[in-house]
Amino acid sequence: MTQTRKAWFALFLTAAFCLFSPPTRAGEAIAPCEAFQRILFLASDDTRLHQEVFQGLRSRLPQDIPLVYTALGGPDAAPWVQSTDCPCCLVVTSGTRALQHAAERVSRARVLSITIPREAYDRIMAQVPDPQRYAAVYMDIPLEQRIALTRRHLAGMERFAIVQSAQGPFAAQGADDPAEVVRLVSHGEADLVDTFTRAARQADAILTLPDRHIYNPRTIVSIMMTTYRQGTPLIGHSEALLRAGALLSIHAPPQRLGTEAAHLIRHPPADWGGTRQHTQEQVVAVNEQVARALRIHVERP
């Protein structure tokens, strides 16, 4: 109860401070800050995913740094966002919707976006007038890195296939792909099995993309069974794909996304607004059952 009162008092002070601070306009350099006066963790949803990210963040920040958790949809989200919108404050957005919300409602505080893929971040930032307040650690791992990691663990992987939907977010991509990557397009669930069969025949492994038109609970069984029958492994982008039957997953666990953000907060770069980086927290997990069934030896360098 006492803690709650303290929190509300801090909220009042921060709100008063922010009320009298001038807003930052586009093109204007952001004020230097020795340390963040207040940090708000704004989650897209109050789910355990974001709670885990927050837990990772909290665990690596000194306890004296004021850090508040809130989630969109919660009754206290709006006042907290408003009260943290001050020049030396920081809003850590976790998730796509949280960044969208911050882009619309936060005008003075700096924003650090985590738990967000680069594609989503770029789309939102395209509409933001003052990007110098924004920094990001993307949760996705670039294709080239995934291929390199796969090759470190699986010998003899030369050709990779990617299956993407015709209407999905990756439809325009592929021009910059490495030469060993071939992309196949699925035009709907009706041709999914055929597309994966062709992909499996053309490649040593199939790299998955976060394309929900392709990979979702409805289709995943068909995809896994098709590629398994062809003896071609799937290299997943998430732990769920690994459990579903992918041979490897190369992903960043939520808690480690939080710890990575904590490092950035403790050691803020001079060029805050220029900080856009992919996560360095890359975990390669192996489904031993699948490796055994496909008789694939996984190296552990």
Binding site: S44, P169, D211, V221, G245
Partner: peptide
């Protein structure tokens, strides 16, 4: 239409 964090943490049935 673009990927979000949910595409990375979406739960999927265990097929294999």
């Amino acid at each position: 239409d673009w990927p979000t964090e949910q595409d990375y943490f979406m739960d999927l049935p265990v097929a294999l």
